[in-house]
């Protein structure tokens, strides 16, 4: 793997994402955890930009970083009481969780690294045209996605109604 510009960018993003995703689950304060989650989501958007999916990256930034993390921070500040620090677990449970995690990660990494993917050797990241995305998203032919699009819209409507119904004052 020669050292091109994209390779350097990818390594920087990879280290950034790995460090912050581990720090997200290891920190004690939950507000810091949400902040590190925001950094992880920005790194993921950077990976999408690096792959050439500019639309997906901007959706990631707008929906996740603009919507979900703000929602998290609001709800953390609403519900933070005396118990907002993570309490000490029992050592046996901690070891069990860590063992399951490391075992699963070892299996997944082993399978990933030993499997031969029939990959295209050097795909240049072509930016997908926004017109192509729009025609595919709202097309009703064989490769059209209008049915899941409408299903997601109904799901979002149900989610709005359900959220209001659950969180309303009685």
């Amino acid at each position: 793997m020669e050292l091109t510009f994209e390779t350097i960018i990818f390594y920087a993003l990879a280290i950034f994402i790995s460090v912050f995703s581990v720090m997200t689950v290891c920190t004690r304060h939950i507000v810091r955890s949400a902040t590190y989650l925001l950094f992880v989501l920005f790194g993921t958007a950077g990976i999408y930009f690096l792959l050439g999916y500019t639309f997906l990256g901007s959706v990631q930034i707008m929906v996740y970083a603009g919507g979900i993390v703000v929602l998290y921070v609001f709800s953390i500040l609403l519900t933070s009481g005396d118990g907002d620090r993570a309490e000490k677990l029992k050592r046996s449970k901690l070891i069990a969780g860590l063992g399951a995690t490391i075992g699963g990660a070892a299996i997944v990494l082993f399978i990933t690294l030993t499997h031969k993917f029939t990959t295209i050797t050097d795909p240049e990241p072509i930016e997908t045209n926004i017109k192509t995305i729009g025609h595919a998203l709202l097309g009703s032919d064989k490769y059209g996605y209008v049915l899941p699009f409408e299903a997601v819209s109904i799901l979002l409507l149900a989610c709005i109604v359900g959220g209001l119904l659950i969180a309303r004052k009685r």
Binding site: L89, K93, A96, I102, A105
Partner: peptide, 20 residues
């Protein structure tokens, strides 16, 4: 895939060990 596997299992670890 290695990056996403690290992120995935960090999530699994947090899911197992956090109590909030």
């Amino acid at each position: 895939l290695i990056v996403s596997a690290i992120m995935f299992f960090a999530g699994i670890y947090g899911f197992f060990t956090r109590r909030n």
